[in-house]
Amino acid sequence: MSEKPYVSVENISKWYPYKGDKLINHEKKFIKANDDINLSIQKGEILGVIGESGCGKSTLGKLLTRLETPTAGDCLINGVSTKELIKNDMKAFRRSVQIIFQNPFDTFTPRDTIEQILLRPLKNHNIGNSKEERRKLCIERLEEGGLVPGEDIMKRYPHELSGGQLQRISIIRAMLLDPEFIVADEPVSMLDVSVRAEIINMLLDLAKLHNTAVMFISHDIALTRYISDNIAVMYLGKVVEYGKADEVVNNPGHPYTKALISNCASIDPDDEREEISITGEPPTPLDPGPGCYFAPRCFMACEKCLKEYPDKKNLSDTHWITCMNAE
């Protein structure tokens, strides 16, 4: 951890005002989609973010790419606040930070051909000198990405291509701008299992080639462990555990992570482990607390857990959790 982090998230929060019950209850309430998150990503590092649905993973991704404005806190890239970056030069910021969305079928406007879709950002960012040059670059990249023949793909409309093809194009398009940081928001969760590996490998190869920092959002622990350097586990808008991928998976500290991993199907049928079940639904992120957010469902919860939110506790130099009961 001697290097300065490339992307650093500092106390970022996103609260959405809650509109219900206004007539009866005048107290202003917030849905805390993200609450006081601190993370950092080095150049070339892949950070996996896991958690169940609705825990704020995608919101975090949107905050980092500034598609949403954080309520509090900031995200620094190379030590400069993204707020400043986007104010000073929107295009330069958009070039350096890219996002790949979950749903490839809705990532492209249905009225344009792939050619128009790929050429527009290139023209906006003044990459390539002439239309011919840009076209050539696109076809080259498409064919490198296994979309052959590129010439033919360029003429298609998005609805004429498969999800896997579209997601490849989405990755290719993001990579055309040579970004330094990519948020991949569950890029394969809507694809067939058969093409997932190819898409992920393609993303990782490109990221490695350009030394890009990647935030990989997923709910698939096995996959995340396989590809990431570090893993952050989120629960109800908070990061509850962070550490090296193997450390987190082999030696989970937080009871929520323990439960998640114990329920994850293993390839090895002889692998013996105790299954921990958590009961109940996750509570709403509507003004949670004051205690640990996970306490109501936690199998280790004690009285103290319900009173205050636990502090960060280091398990090792590279591994921390927020739990009272950690040994």
């Binding site: 930070v97 996002i99 969305f101």
Partner: peptide, 26 residues
């Protein structure tokens, strides 16, 4: 709120471009 509008924004397209190329044609 559609993804393609968000993705156009993430690709660095201006508000005017988004309005005329994505919102109005669709």
């Amino acid at each position: 709120e559609r993804v393609f509008v968000k993705s156009a924004e993430a690709m660095g397209e201006t508000k005017r471009q988004i309005l005329f190329k994505y919102i109005i044609p669709n």
